[in-house]
Structure formats: C-alpha cells, structure tokens
Design a protein around this nucleic acid. Structure first.
Lengths: 156, 156
DNA sequence: TTCATGTTTGTAATCATTACAAAATAGTTT
DNA sequence: AAACTATTTTGTAATGATTACAAACATGAA
C-alpha cells in the first residue's frame, strides 16, 4: 500500500517496513489492540520484531496523531487506529471494547476554563448487551472489572 | 468522626481504624491521590500500614461506590473521593488533575445501545491554564504526557 | 566506501499491582 | 475469660507492562 507510505511520509515519519506493518495492522484492525496482541500477531510477518519497537512506534504514531492510546483497560494500554472523535464502552464481563458514536461538544472547543485540550477520552464501563442477554450472567455486580491480564490461570 | 463510621456501616463495611483513616484521607482530600501518595501520607498515622491494605480497601470502597478509581494517569491509578458525576482534566506538563464540571447526559441514562452503564469516565488531556501562562512553556507539544512515576531520576 | 544519523533489537531495570499465607484483630459462644 | 471462628491486616514474593539503555543494523549523503 503506497497509501500507508504516504501517510507516514506526510508526517515526517520514515516509512520503514516495521512501521508500515504496524500502521496497517492498527488501522485495518478495528479491535483496539494491546502491545501484547500486536506483537503476537506481527511476529508471524516479522520474526525479529521486538516489543520495544512496538512501544516506540505506537508512541510515535500517537504523538503524530495517527493512532489514539486508550487507557480504558486498567493495566494494559490499547491502541485505536480510528482517530476521529468517538467514545468507548468496556464490558467488564467479556472485556470487549465497543465504539460509541457520540457527539461530545465539550472537547471540540479546544479549550475549557483556559486549559488547552489536546485529547478527549470518553469511557463507559459496564456490561455489554450480549453479556446481559447471555443466560447465567443476569446478575453481574457493577464495578467488577476483569482485565485480560488477570483472567489467566495462576502459576502457583 | 462518627459520620464516617456510619457511612461504612451503612454499606456493610466493618469500620476498622485503617478503613476510617483511608476514607477520611480520600474524602477530605481533593487531590485524586495515588496509592503511593496515600501510603506515604498515612504511615505517619499508622506506621504498620501496608500497601496491600490500601489496595484492598480502595477496591472495596470502589465496589461499594464510596470512591471512584481514575485511570487518567497512565501507569498509576488515582482515587477520587467525590463520586458525584464529573469529568477530569490532566495537565501533561505539571501532572495536575483538575475537576471539570460538565453535564454529560449520555451516561446518566444508565444504558446505551442495550449496554448497561455502570461507570462514566470523561478525561481531557492537555496543558492547564497555569502552565500555558508560565513563561518558557509556551510551545508544549501535544501528547507529551509525563506521568509522575517517570519523572524521577534514573538509578542507573 | 566512509561517515553520520536514524531505526531496530535484546536485555536488564523499574515499578504498579496481585497472589498468598501468616499474624493480628474482633465477635461469638461456652 | 478461654476457645473458636471469621474477618482484617500485613509482609513477602510473584507477575507483567513499560522504560532505559546500548549494541547491532540499515539508510542516505558526501
């Protein structure tokens, strides 16, 4: 894709193979990936890919406005290739993150009470429609978030 | 304060000295404290206080709706004793967190697109009024957040 | 080619958070 | 009060995301 290459060049980012691969993965994928997931997926294409490169690349992309870094999942950052303003819903049962299209007039002003606004983050947490409908999950207590990293088996 | 004791008892939380102290610190303090800060402040009153107790206590309080856990500062959770709905502004220069009073009609509905909403988090990031006015800080680039934990000297 | 600069990689630290079990505390019953 | 039980607190040891750092690598200019 020369389109991706142009996107990087326009922002003064040298379009290396790694960066193009990361940009392709983040923007084609609609799933708010973590570094961990991204690394697991991309080592297939770039066997030597290091996590440090992913951290560096995504921080660079974030600074240049190509991706958005989400801190909705406590303990692990997630990256969104869609930079157009929208909010997110985090399901505390299945851990899924769902895009919420909302017109939030506040952030668009660019400033509030004299403070310059660079980023607007709107996070909703709760139980998603599917998990509510699933039998046996009817009484999930609020505030019980189970991030992916804590959902594993203990190695005691 | 018997008021604090009643608050805990009403929610079925046994009002121990540790819990009362934590609740007092979080609710009287308007500063969105971290576990680290809280521990540093409270060991003066309870020399044996452990961080595990703070984690347990604040998770319990959060589950019972006595405090709100904020993930606006990447890398470190912050706790807000004010549970009434409001948003937050994070200054990427000084690291300060400022309350933003905003009427956000979306979250109050309790559900959106069939998803049950338990928590609403509105975070703005940028440069606060004071840091904008401070001379020598006029050209802070967007997206350069410096969390407290990374602001220390390296021990290499 | 040589040089300088930017990029990638691997390894080692840092540090918030969690897991876990022992010690301490409080409430209850005898 | 002692004995017992359930809850709470504490200290220590994992876990795991993120950062620091320097060596290896690639790239483009002179």
């Amino acid at each position: 894709m020369n389109v991706l290459k142009d996107i990087l060049s326009e922002r003064g980012i040298r379009p290396t193979f790694q960066r193009l691969t990361v940009l392709a993965a983040v923007s084609e994928n609609r799933s708010h990936v973590t570094i961990r997931e991204l690394h697991a997926a991309l080592v297939k294409k770039i066997p030597t890919l290091s996590k440090t490169t992913l951290y560096n690349t995504l921080e660079l992309f974030s600074a240049k406005g190509l991706v958005r870094s989400l801190s909705i999942d406590p303990g692990e950052a997630r990256y969104d290739g869609v930079v157009a303003p929208h909010h997110h819903f985090y399901c505390s049962v299945c851990g899924r993150i769902i895009d919420i299209e909302i017109s939030c007039p506040t952030g668009r002003a660019g400033e509030i009470h004299g403070h310059r606004i660079d980023e607007v983050h709107g996070y909703f947490k709760g139980v998603c429609r599917d998990c509510l409908a699933r039998p046996g999950q009817t009484s999930v207590p609020p505030g019980k978030h189970i991030p992916a990293q804590r959902r594993r088996i203990s190695h005691a």
